[in-house]
Amino acid sequence: MHPLVDISWWRLSACGLCLIFAVAVSLRMKLGIERTLTIASIRGPLQLFAVGYALSAIFAVRNPLLVIALLLIMLSVAARTGAGRLSRPLPHIAPLLGVSLACGTAISLVVMTTLVVPTEPWYDPQYLIPFGGMLLGNSMNAASLAGERFQEELRARRLHIETLLCVGFSGPDSVHEMFARSLRASMIPTLNAFMVAGIVQLPGMMTGQILAGVDPLMAVKYQVLIFFLLLTSVMTTSWMFLSFLRSHYFTPTHQFRSDLL
């Protein structure tokens, strides 16, 4: 195994040249996203470096409260960001997405730390934080997809819903198909990644470990672990979030709140 090639700062800055191509395409196609591309290209690296320094400090201190505090910060940012992606904002939906993300991620992390990688101590930041981040990020994306799709379905099928309510269907029963389609849609990116893993692309975590000099078989084991944890986390988060979302659109007497769409 060759040691990892160090990237000097000036060479790293050279990859910023890639931005020129993206901005050029945006200008040529009149996409209007040049400003966003530029801001994202500055903001992303700055955030990553800040997190890098914070992680170095947290890894050194190994304090459970610090680890939990960092996970909570990641959770609240994910909840706010995910809720903000809904095409029709709803009151108090960000905290409910936060609860969904917390449950989905917690189940996976508990399985990981108790059954698969019993770290010592249980809050070992070297494991908990990167795994927590991956689970939160993927679950947030899935929940956003689910929520957006569900709102679209409700908007397009108002009359279908009311027709079923008129003849005695409950609110949840009247949107069962739409709920299922939205949940399925939210699982597609995760399932696709699972289906083509190793054939079309090497997953990010595995790539990172191999670059860092880890035995490829060990990297595969961790990647398999993350796939299974993701399936649980993404499914649980999307399902819970959709359930919360659905409850917003029906009164206790099973009337449809189409005014919220």
Binding site: L159, E162, T163, L165, C166, V167, G168, F169, S170, H254
Partner: peptide
């Protein structure tokens, strides 16, 4: 209960 009621009083939109 609203669902029982709507079963007994059906609306055709």
């Amino acid at each position: 209960p609203p669902l029982d009621f709507r079963h007994r009083v059906q609306l055709v939109l």
